[in-house]
Amino acid sequence: MQKKSNPLVKLFHFVLTLLLIIPAVFLLSSASSAESFPQRPISFMLPGGPGGGFDTYTRALARFMPKHLPREVNIVAVNMPGAGGKVCTSYIYRSKPNGYTIGFFNQPGTVVTELLERNPGYKVREVTWLGTVATVTYVMLVPGSSNIKTLEDLKKLGRPVKFGSNGFGQTDFLIDILASEEMGIPFVMVTGYTGSAAVMVAALRGDVDAMSYPISSALPNIKSGDLRPIILLGDKRSDILPDVPTSTELGFPNVANFASMYRMVGGPPKIPGSIKNVLAGALEKTIKDPEVQAWSKKANRPLNFINVDKTNEIADSMFKTFQKYLDTIKKHKEKLN
């Protein structure tokens, strides 16, 4: 494989390399100025593995959001599962506030972790919020074959109700324990299932009596009769399940305060105002894009945009809400051990 090195070829290679390097240097140097954001691909971090809820939303944003940016750059979905979302949240928190690293925050999960832990690695109240993509309403479900039909049936089971959940610190766990306490349901938790699919199978198998699940994700299995919704955890009846009573109607208005999950988008603290406005604007335009709305309807992945100011407000009030429930949460954490 030995070739004689021709000086002309060498020169050609040298020139070629220069031609490649010079534009690259220019690109890099211009990227550092905030004037013309964005210049290079944006990493969109998400707290979960491929195939989950955040994953689907992120990939949809990665597909539709670039054309709403002032300059079309790629948005790259980056899965960062781990430590119940902590790995992702603290990664975003620590990254450079230049707008090239943004991501999803699982609220109230991040808030509760921060309240419970000595060293969570982030401060949610310092995050630069860009808006909320979707609000997830939970519904309390029992297997279709179960005799339980109402809240009263749950209370009169004669034994503690077994709730299935992914585990401590997950949103469904928080909702299960807080809603049951609030509504006076005697219960125990069965945890350790890896993913919501496993919890659903556990319910169908009869490992557990009940579970809480995002309404849109549970819908196909509700329609097929595998699962029966008994209480909608919120204050407004759902359009897709109009017959299911809400917790507020049943006389427990407090449940609505903690039983929703917000898919909030944010970045590290102190993103400059101009960049923040570009991103927040693009996010809003994307969600309101008719093409995106059509996808949302067809795929049954609800989108309801909440703007930056309102998102800030919700994130702040969440701290106060969960501060109140902190003792209950701690009590059930102890119980598991």
Partner: peptide, 28 residues
């Protein structure tokens, strides 16, 4: 049987269904 993924790959496949505008589940 239930529209529930049995493996990590299957979960990604069902996620891809959603992005293509299909709702995975028993009905699908």
């Amino acid at each position: 049987a239930f529209g529930i993924p049995g493996s990590a790959e299957m979960a990604v496949l069902l996620g891809a269904f959603i992005l293509h505008g299909l709702v995975p589940g028993p009905a699908l």
